[in-house]
Design a binder for these strands. Structure first.
Length: 364
DNA sequence: GAACTTTGACCAGAA
DNA sequence: TTTCTGGTCAAAGTT
């Protein structure tokens, strides 16, 4: 079984360019990975919390990453109902935005069923441009998770690209739109995604969030280089072992292996020329728990949960909906970049770090 | 010195 | 069989 997801959030068409943003969601598969599997794979969760509450404030340095009109308090912006409006986030029940952006997608479980029924030829890959959790794989068979990032949000008519391998994925569109946030060159999608959609989780089995973990530039000067070097933000450690220029795509594809001994999990990451992640494909499942006592497993998620009214252990709920715990998930938030270099503001809810950013944590 | 990235070369499967 | 392509290896360089 294969799970994948991708998604995007876009601001209402009439929103102000400076205050709107879009982001491509990560699959956050790991959020559901082990836990869901452990639970029998029957659980399905949906992120109810809007991605509007980044664990960290927007990058301090000027950037097109997130433009906030002058005079607009970022905090206010984050609290703005507009950011939480249904027009920007999928309905928890329909997975569709008010604009019906994702009306085309099939709920994960349905897709799974479809795959089982032959809906998906190989039955191995599906793309869920929504933010709902999916049942984690229950077998050891290779699981491939695709996370497709898009610069502009998925448009209703966006072309669905099917790769030679039969993988479906929405590719990031090259053309940029005024209302789309622009990721800083060199800043991986994780940063942006985490910043604006860290809470969103899609299902999967592995740790899809990898590249998307919240390496939000720390106010104290987060190392962008570090951010790029570290390929994993999903709680697992990855080692890049190859890079290829895939024919038919101008984006180089990088290959990563889980560094855990004997762990067969691999992932492919495609980045656009400007460094934005356009696709992530996971292959295999981790045969180990996420490394602990690592910054990767930082408590960003925990804090997030706390912010959401949950706690860092046990079952949490976003807006009343149970979600994977930081422990069992490799949600994008809570990784290296996020925790370690990236988002100290993630707080120390679950750990011992980020003290220097406590002010930020409190602020947020 | 360990861990990681980079990058050219190699290998295997598909056309 | 040959060619093409994706995936992987491994040495060298970097952090």
């Amino acid at each position: 079984m294969t799970t994948s997801s991708s998604g995007s959030i876009e601001a209402p068409a009439n929103s102000r360019p400076g205050s709107s943003f879009s982001f491509a969601s990560t699959s956050f598969t790991d959020m559901m990975g082990s836990s869901a599997a452990a639970a029998g794979g029957a659980s399905r969760y949906k992120a109810m919390t809007p991605p509007s509450l980044p664990l960290s404030p927007p990058p301090v340095s000027p950037s097109s990453f997130f433009n906030i009109p002058g005079g607009l308090n970022p905090a206010d912006f984050l609290d703005s109902p507009a950011l939480l409006s249904s027009s920007m986030f999928p309905s928890p029940t329909t997975n569709a935005f008010a604009s019906q952006q994702f009306s085309w997608l099939t709920p994960p479980q349905q897709q799974q069923g479809a795959a089982e029924q032959g809906g998906d030829k190989d039955g191995q890959r599906q793309t869920y441009p929504d933010f709902s959790f999916q049942t984690a794989p229950t077998t050891e068979e290779a699981v491939r998770t695709t996370t497709t990032f898009q610069q502009p949000p998925i448009q209703p008519g966006a072309p669905l690209v099917r790769s030679a391998s039969g993988e479906d994925a929405y590719r990031g569109q090259q053309q940029q739109q005024p209302w789309s946030y622009q990721q800083q060159p060199g800043m991986d999608a994780g940063s942006s995604q985490a910043a604006y959609g860290g809470q969103f989780q899609a299902a999967g089995s592995s740790d899809a969030a990898t590249e998307m973990a919240p390496h939000v530039p720390a106010s104290g000067g987060y190392s962008q280089q570090q951010s790029q070097r570290r390929s994993s933000d999903d709680g697992y450690n990855w080692r890049k072992y190859g890079q290829k220029q895939v024919k038919g795509s101008e984006n180089p594809r990088s290959y990563y292996k889980c560094t855990f001994p004997s762990c067969p999990t691999k992932k492919k990451v495609e980045r656009s020329l400007d460094g934005q992640i356009t696709e992530i494909v996971y292959k295999g499942t981790h045969n180990h728990a996420k490394p602990q006592n690592t910054r990767r497993n930082s408590s960003a998620a925990a804090q997030l949960l706390q912010l959401q009214g949950g706690d860092a252990s046990g079952e949490h709920s976003f807006g009343g909906t149970p979600v994977a715990t930081p422990e069992n998930s490799s949600a994008s938030f809570g990784d290296d970049e996020a925790a370690g270099g990236g988002s100290p503001r993630a707080g120390n809810a679950g750990g011992d770090e980020f003290d220097e950013d406590e002010p930020d944590s409190k602020r947020w």
